[in-house]
Design a protein around this nucleic acid. Structure first.
Lengths: 389, 389
DNA sequence: CACTGAACTGGAAGCGCTCCCGGGAGTCCG
DNA sequence: CGGACTCCCGGGAGCGCTTCCAGTTCAGTG
């Protein structure tokens, strides 16, 4: 039995056991016109090395390295020669070798530990990643996306960063008790959070001002003459949900209104349906609903219509997130816009800064209200100004 | 001016120019209770090396390496000793060093070159990636997701694989003239396609049997008594769209029906709306529509309702894809199910096989019809059997 | 014209791991 | 009891790059 080759790692993790000699059964007749060489198989073409570049340019390897890295102390003539050699040979530096020498691998990971079924198909994450990715495109950093919903996946992620396959990590807020929360301390690798875990303030994070955003939403409802305002919360063991709920209470308290028309949801549309149903049941007099995300708002809209309540005529509805879907509801949803892509951008920028040895401050991004059709000014009870606070 | 450090690569790509010394302005007062060491900054903790493991276990580095890699020719006693040392030191092999020695980096890339705005938030891709990712979890391969919609992004992808930052590539079908189509020949890295580019048969691909799937859909319409069947095609410069259109014509021809109620769409809902509008205009007598994807089917549904045509009473509608959204339409959409996750799984398996030196065959996955509510059997013209082909 | 310092230059030592290879120990058989 | 295997084992040569350091060159000065 031949010694285990690294190739073998692809087949079965423990190299020993009955091994089937490759190539084996699932073998396709090669097409006559093509060779393995041209098809990305067998010995991949050997790339030229820095030594060869140096030799061709007639300089030392050190000098060649310096020009490749744009370092000083190289005469114009040699730089020129090296550049020519590079072009001629089609030289591409080997990132692995470079990583070994510098102990920096040149890539960062963005991890989604969400266990919702949409996984990373979630339009929210998609937008965050887009932000991350455009920001990273300005650097030489490569992005690895890791989706690690299961405990097994998390373990995999932890191993990945422990093994230093990434120079830094971006993590979307996890529940406060998630073991991953201490990745930074544990591995000594910079970690930037998107959002904050509940009860834990990470050293570096980018978050949206959920509390102020929620307040904006509710103040708008109040300003437009709504008084019996209900809210559908998210799962209150998350920071997002509590912050938004706090914003709701802030605004209600300041206006001297009762903040006890509350139903708990779970940030899903189905949860919104259930919560709205309970609200209508318990508080049939409500004249507005602040759903703390768009999905639940959509659910609420459906329930309200089913119960014959006109939106915005009878009941005003405000959501939160401003996902693309929000403008496809009927009526189009007035909602709080989160700068999601900016969130991603800032996370990436922060991580890059960290990697460059800086100590950036946590960032809290503002949210803003987007007026659409699910709220309409209504008659204000006598004795109050229509636009007063 | 100090020499360019690799760290500098994170800041500005060409190391020279006015450089701001880091740390700089955006500097946060450190919290008193924490040290840099614990926060993943400054010198990351030096990991133990194989040499140290070997020394502690009292064996040679070679022996230690063998037990790490599960290779033979190690006595049980030494294996035991090494394992103990590994545990004690918390040793984790350095993937970079390993990669340099084996010239295999241990990761593969899945690239989305789509330029649609949903980017990779697209639920279709999300499912493919999930399949890829579960399959890859069985190996030691890491997954890099690259979203490269712009020419610039493509260039980046090409550089990435030229520099051998990945051992293999998975590419979703691109338009036939995409320069990326020749990545395999160009770089000598194995490439597996998902779907096929138009007019080009890649050496290795996984595809869904779109033609047969489309045929299934149309045969179902015929079997249920529909005769004046229209179709909304995708952009006919893609293989998917042409294959599905061919399936439509196959079925129609076999049944001796006219296949000229055709409108071109673009696989978006808006496109479906436009196409359906045109169809109703040109062929007001149609009694069924085969929309070649679900998004367009949803658009068609809306238009039909707006024109007072009852679905399925007046017009039967069949879609293609069976995305989650398909069961949220009203009425729920009868559609052709694509095994999307399996597509991802098979792509990953194929790539792994390639990497292990095998030569797998291209795979074509079957599609199947999912019966829901948008088609209902209707009266069959006199002289024809209701269930006849 | 000797002298100083700054700008270059190339040799060489790693980075941490894999794997070839030759040697030693143990086993089996004639 | 010696030869021929078979198994183990450790030394050492890389993988391709960065970077320290000592040495060289060459203006510019007094």
């Amino acid at each position: 039995m031949p010694p285990a080759t690294p190739r073998e790692r692809f087949q079965n993790r423990s190299a020993y056991g009955p091994r089937i000699a490759a190539p084996r059964a699932n073998l396709c007749p090669p097409r006559f016109e093509e060779s393995d060489r041209t098809m990305g198989i067998s010995q991949p073409a050997r790339q030229p090395t820095l030594d060869e570049v140096a030799a061709l340019a007639g300089v030392s390897r050190s000098a060649a390295s310096r020009v490749i890295n744009n370092a000083p102390h190289v005469s114009a003539a040699k730089r020129e020669a090296v550049l020519r050699a590079v072009a001629e040979l089609g030289y591409v530096p080997n990132p692995t070798a470079r990583a070994l020498a510098t102990s920096q691998v040149g890539s960062v990971v963005f991890a989604v530990t969400n266990d919702n079924p949409a996984a990373f198909g979630d339009p929210f994450f998609a937008q965050v990643v887009r932000g991350v990715s455009t920001e990273l495109a300005k650097t030489d950093l490569e992005l690895m996306l890791v989706v690690a919903p299961s405990p097994h996946g998390r373990e995999r992620l932890r191993r990945l960063v422990r093994a230093r396959r990434a120079d830094g990590v971006m993590l979307m807020a996890l529940s406060g008790d998630d073991p991953l929360a201490h990745l930074a301390e544990e591995t000594g690798v910079p970690v930037v959070f998107g959002g904050r875990p509940l009860h834990v303030e990470p050293r570096w994070y980018v978050d949206v001002d959920n509390r102020a955003g929620a307040r904006l939403a509710v103040e708008h409802l109040i300003r437009t003459g709504h008084r019996r305002i209900a809210t559908i919360t998210g799962p209150l063991d998350t920071d997002v949900a509590t912050a938004r709920h706090r914003g709701f209470r802030d605004a209600m308290a300041e206006a001297g209104l009762s903040a006890d028309r509350v139903a708990a949801g779970d940030f899903t549309e189905a949860g919104g349906v259930a919560a709205m149903t309970r609200l209508l049941d318990a508080h049939p007099d409500l004249d507005a609903v602040f759903a703390t995300n768009d999905a639940m708002a959509a659910g609420a809209l459906r329930v309200l219509r089913a119960h014959g309540r006109d939106v915005p005529g009878d009941v005003g509805v405000v959501g939160f997130d401003d996902l693309p879907a929000a403008s496809h509801t009927d009526p189009q949803l007035t909602t709080v816009h989160q700068p999601i892509e900016a969130l991603g951008r800032e996370m990436a920028r922060m991580l890059v800064a960290l990697l460059a040895g800086e100590r950036p401050c946590p960032i809290i991004l503002p949210a803003r209200l987007v007026l659409r059709d699910s709220v309409r000014p209504r008659a204000v009870p006598a004795g109050e100004a229509a636009t007063g606070r």
